[in-house]
Design a protein around this nucleic acid. Structure first.
Lengths: 137, 137
DNA sequence: TCCGAAATGATTACCGTTATGATTATGGTC
DNA sequence: GACCATAATCATAACGGTAATCATTTCGGA
């Protein structure tokens, strides 16, 4: 998993497709699904395969360049990551617009609670969904 | 939805299959998937269709008799609900064993944060995953 | 320019879940 | 107990998002 080569961690090669995927994500402040991104690329004339979109999104997420979260119906959506540190989101259920929020207390609490109960390797998911002002109007 | 007949609120009719599904869930303290439950029923000789299992799980969840949550890979798992009030879980990633935890502060915070940002109709998901002592051993 | 390795992408598989629709079982009534 | 309307069941097939396959293309260093 961890290598340590002199190559950049991301893609060893720069490709038109990789750029295109990245650009779509960077060009939007909303959480977008892989298929959504794929559709946008296609309709804007960029020929990129769905597989490739998935691959790049996964890569970018691994690198911490993108945030990913699951919507209520199990779809994974992506957005560019704004802050280095761990955080969560308030996400609009309709348009996917999201705001990052930090919750240091929660992080500590989650970890502490779980270990107190004997659980190790603790991870947590915290997401808040709502309808944003624009979509409500 | 809520009636108050002498029959259990659950299904309008009592059926062998409904009982069977309920029994499996009540008989385990772990979060179980629909397919898992279905497999157990089958292997224990109870002939119950997968569709039926899904339907009963959905019904029981609607009634608040079961807790449901999505695992990291999008699968929905169920367990009997122990407490009436809103709560979250610390769940073992391996065996599905879970502990209920209440987080009144978090609830309030989530709602407040989201509305302050202009979001309405706020819901949240908070789940904590780890590996329990037994599974680690 | 050449070449090996990496990336791509059409296609197919996968997996959990849900819709369909014919069949069966339930429970109130006579 | 018999009857019947209706709810419940369940095999099957569809669905939707995601991941694997693998032949082909592209990259970029020599």
């Amino acid at each position: 998993m961890a290598d340590a080569s002199d190559h950049p961690a991301r893609a060893s090669r720069r490709t038109r497709q990789g750029e295109a995927v990245l650009n779509v994500v960077l060009g939007s402040d909303n959480f977008r699904s892989a298929q959504d991104i794929h559709a946008e690329l296609r309709s804007s004339g960029e020929a990129v395969g769905l597989t490739t979109v998935y691959r790049h999104l996964a890569l970018l997420t691994d690198e911490g360049r993108l945030d990913a979260l699951q919507t209520a119906d199990g779809e994974v959506v992506y957005r560019r990551c704004h802050s280095e540190s761990h955080h969560h989101h308030v996400v609009c259920r309709r348009c996917g617009r999201g705001v990052e929020v930090a919750l240091p207390d929660l992080e500590r609490w989650a970890e502490a609670t779980a270990s107190a109960l004997g659980y190790s390797d603790v991870t947590h998911t915290v997401e808040i969904f709502g309808v944003c002002a624009d979509c409500r109007g």
